[in-house]
Design a protein around this nucleic acid. Structure first.
Lengths: 146, 146
DNA sequence: GTATATTCAGACAAAGATATCTGAAAAGAA
DNA sequence: TTCTTTTCAGATATCTTTGTCTGAATATAC
């Protein structure tokens, strides 16, 4: 397939976004997340664990436990999440797959793609979860599925 | 992983590019291609078959057989190849994976990503194989591995 | 304490992508 | 014709990603 983010990463973004919609600090169990988002329970569990280990989420066990953001939503960017799950896959490497492509020895789209990749990177680091969550509260968005 | 194109697609682009470096109409067997590009023989075979079925390449069996471009290199764009191998995966669907994301009901990066996707699309349709092959003939490129 | 609700860890399963193998079919050369 | 070189088709193998299952650990409520 291949389209910028792995499915895990998409799920991670969706989940963090959902947490940001809740009152700050509220603990949300995996259960509640899967009900809204269409993500397999145990798979989501593992993703949330990853994000917790990376320091983006905080977790509490037991009744009234669950996950919450470890930082103010404004301090979490899309890039933080992508980096935590997919690593630096998309900044590295030639888009045409030439092993020897580099600044010194560029493939034919090296520069063009470089610019576009930078723009995407800019989007990722400039978009924070707090802002995005507010966007999603707009009635025309919430009306449907969220 | 996930970075725009599948590996198959990268291989396909590399192979077509390599064919475009040869005199027009020259038949190149899979063998000669794997020697230059680092692509597994049989895997490449299947990819070349796909491209042939899609009408981008022409194939001849037997001694002195092999693959050649079915069109003038200037008429083959990157998009033709990507479309033939990866389909429309990257034009479809929300980059954050929201199933319900659409123009009416956009996710928070719908528009930004849409613009960037369009730019990438523009790159793909505007870059033709003939032009790219010429780029690759430049000495500072050929010097290394091609 | 016991029961319950949760995260957490690890093994397992299924699906998809990538890679390899085998042999048949076709075409040219001897 | 026979031999060789190639594409072509299909089966199989390996690896990665995605998804599932089971049970342990932990925290709260009773």
């Amino acid at each position: 397939m291949s389209i910028l983010f792995s499915r895990q990463c998409e799920y991670a973004i969706q989940a963090v976004l959902f947490l940001a919609l809740k009152p700050e600090g509220e603990r949300v169990p995996t259960n509640a997340l899967t009900r809204r988002l269409k993500i397999p329970y145990h798979f989501l569990g593992k993703i949330l664990q990853s994000l917790t280990r990376k320091g983006l989420l905080r977790s509490e066990k037991g009744p009234k436990g669950g996950f919450s953001l470890a930082l103010p939503p404004e301090d979490i960017t899309l890039f933080h999440i992508v980096e935590a799950i997919d690593g630096d896959a998309f900044t590295r490497s030639c888009v045409l797959g030439f092993p020897e492509c580099s600044g010194k020895n560029p493939c034919s789209v090296h520069e063009t793609w470089g610019k576009q990749r930078d723009q995407i990177y800019q989007m990722l680091v400039s978009r924070n979860i707090g802002e995005m969550a507010r966007d999603m509260k707009r009635p025309e968005y919430r009306s449907k599925a969220h």
